[in-house]
Design a protein around this nucleic acid. Structure first.
Length: 592
DNA sequence: GCCGTTTTCGGCCCGACTGTTTTCAGTCG
């Protein structure tokens, strides 16, 4: 039983309570608890085994602590089973349709016995829904369209597409008369790994009619809402874009509000109330007088806080950290001094060794590691020991010619299902670094998958675990692994984990990055570039790293070449005794 | 259902837009 299982049960309870018309605060308590468990970074089961009190966790009181204990022990949540017995299966699905909330879902079920989306569409088609109070023609049409859209569309989009769409919208809005300033907010600004819709905030002159033209722009297929200050549209590519317009003096407050997260806003507003103030998207008010709001910083300052970076606004302790003056100094792209995971034409890359090196050098870096695939990945034309040896010679020759830049010799070696590495030890020991990765047997049971990684990390040449969970966003779920054990193993071994910056991977994710930071394990933020353009992926990786509270000191490839070499050498020197790996140089153990 | 040096009870963020409810509930963000 892992946190995600408990969280899923609590979310199900919240859905069902919603359908029953329970108190919104009770529902929120379950949702908050579910979210907290997902973000926690350590397993509740482990906490219980250590004898820790669960009700010390934020949002967990006596009741939820008891329920968590029961779920961990029995795998069951009695309340959930009871609620499920009261609500026909399928009705919960209705809540996922925009336009159907708990009241309408209940009305559908009670008046017409509707349980599924198909039932809804039939009832619309044969006119039965018209007789139900609260379902006018427009509402029916909206619901019908939402159901169709849901069938076709993936609900969340990856960052590159979201950023491109946002950039296009921002460009056209900036050119609108009456628009003084416009910026993207929402989860895009917080750099979440996927984005559900795009939120734009504009400062406009009084009387601006920009929402009207925004909703009538080419590319808009559906107008969900349109008023004088806000409009919501769906574009032909399926993406929803929301525009909110405010006067210039409210721009900061509006940006703050529409950047979220929702829970961060709730916490800020509560803090305002505690100080006898009121915070909304127009500003921070004492009575009727606005005391802040033109910039985000002005609002934070008036609430006694330093500016909290958007990536931290997830209600994961950032406000408390701000009050204690221990907000992290977040990493930036220009802090990187090199890239430790790249490919060339020798395996499945598109550019030559020399071209990649030149592009990396042009970025102002000190180094770049070439880490082509190993032979197991035949699809990628992976290197066997012989071809790798040739590549090593070519890199040596290239380094002779380069000035002020070094190509490090590496490999992205397959971690085989038994945890062994896909190349012989003698060739691996000639490399500057060995990046290990899983590219097969993704569905091993949790225990075996974890053991596989731990065994690989015990190899004397192992340096960095690449894309540790092997997830592909929207395509492949993360492997089942005990991340806490993997992180602790890395600390023990002195080796490192990767934050793969490919926008389809972003692996480790934000929460896992923070776990690694908390355990003192450095991360390699790596582009996994397969051509020179892919170095641009790093900005997505930086976004996730910032969400994981990482500073420059938490990242391996902010180090100078000299410091990096020392750290990489440490992965070998800390080899524990009794390892299954072949020892080339035996390190004497200190006597007790 | 949680939480608390103003509270162990009575709070719990706040506003826009839509539709059909002739004065506001439902939904969303």
């Amino acid at each position: 039983m892992v946190n995600a299982d408990v969280a899923a049960m609590f979310n199900d309870v919240a859905d069902l309570l919603e359908l029953q018309g329970a108190s919104v605060f009770r529902i929120r308590a379950y949702r908050n608890a579910a979210r907290m468990l997902g973000d926690l970074g350590q397993s509740v089961q482990a906490l219980m085994e250590q004898g820790k009190d669960l009700d010390a966790l934020p949002g967990i009181g006596a009741d939820l602590a008891q329920k968590i204990t029961t779920i961990v022990h029995t795998g069951k949540c009695p309340l959930l089973e009871q609620l499920r017995a009261q609500v026909p299966p399928g009705v919960v699905e209705l809540l996922r349709i925009p336009g159907i909330g708990p009241r309408r879902a209940r009305a559908l079920q009670q008046a017409l016995g509707i349980r599924t989306l198909e039932d809804v569409q039939r009832a619309i088609a044969d006119g039965r829904l018209r007789k139900v109070r609260g379902f006018g023609l427009k509402t029916q049409q909206r619901i019908s369209e939402s159901i169709t859209a849901r069938r076709q569309a993936d609900q969340r989009f990856r960052l590159p597409m979201a950023m491109e769409v946002a950039a296009t919208q921002l460009a056209s809005l900036s050119a609108e008369p009456g628009v003084l300033q416009v910026q993207a907010a929402g989860s895009l600004r917080r750099r979440r790994d996927t984005v559900g819709d795009i939120d734009l905030v504009a400062a406009v002159r009084p009387g601006s009619t920009v929402t009207r033209r925004f909703a009538a722009a080419p590319g808009v297929t559906t107008v969900l809402a349109k008023g004088p200050t806000r409009a919501s549209v769906v574009l032909a590519n399926g993406m929803q874009v929301d525009l909110r317009c405010v006067p210039a003096e409210s721009f900061g407050a509006a940006l703050l509000y529409f950047t979220g997260s929702k829970n961060h806003n709730i916490a800020l507003r509560q803090r305002a109330l505690d100080a006898g103030l009121k915070l909304n998207e127009y500003g921070l008010y004492r009575g009727d007088r606005r005391i802040a709001g033109d910039t985000e910083a002005s609002v934070y300052e008036a609430l006694g806080l330093p500016l909290i970076e958007p990536e931290l606004r997830e209600s994961r302790g950032e406000i408390e950290a701000a009050l204690d003056h221990r907000l992290p100094d977040l990493i930036t792209l220009d802090a990187l001094k090199g890239d430790l995971h790249t490919h060339t034409r020798d395996s499945d890359g598109g550019d030559t060794l020399a071209t990649m090196a030149q592009a990396a050098r042009t970025r102002g870096w000190e180094y770049m590691a070439v880490t082509d695939h190993s032979s197991r990945l035949a699809l990628a034309h992976g290197l066997d020991a012989g071809r790798l040896a040739q590549q090593i010679d070519r890199i040596d020759a290239l380094n002779e010619r380069l000035r002020g830049f070094v190509v490090l010799k590496g490999i992205e070696v397959d971690i085989l299902p038994d945890g062994s590495l896909d190349l012989p030890d003698d060739i691996l020991s000639r490399l500057d670094l060995v990046v290990g990765a899983v590219h097969s047997a993704f569905d091993l049971p949790r225990e075996r998958q974890t053991d596989r990684l731990l065994r690989a990390m015990d190899h004397r040449s192992f340096s960095i675990l690449a894309h540790p969970t092997a997830r592909l966003i929207g395509d492949r779920a993360p492997c089942e692994i005990d991340l806490q054990r993997v992180i602790r193993k890395a600390r023990e071994r002195g080796c490192f984990l990767e934050l793969n910056a490919q926008p389809t991977r972003l692996d480790l994710n934000d929460v896992a990055c923070r776990m690694a930071k908390d355990e003192g394990v450095l991360l390699s933020i790596a582009s996994d570039a397969h051509n020179t353009l892919d170095f641009e992926h790093l900005r997505y990786g930086i976004g996730q790293a910032r969400r994981g509270w990482l500073g420059p000191g938490d990242v391996l490839n902010t180090r100078s070449l000299e410091a990096l070499r020392t750290l990489l050498a440490g992965t070998i020197e800390k080899l524990p005794s009794g390892s299954s790996c072949r020892a080339v140089t035996q390190v004497p153990l200190p006597m007790p």
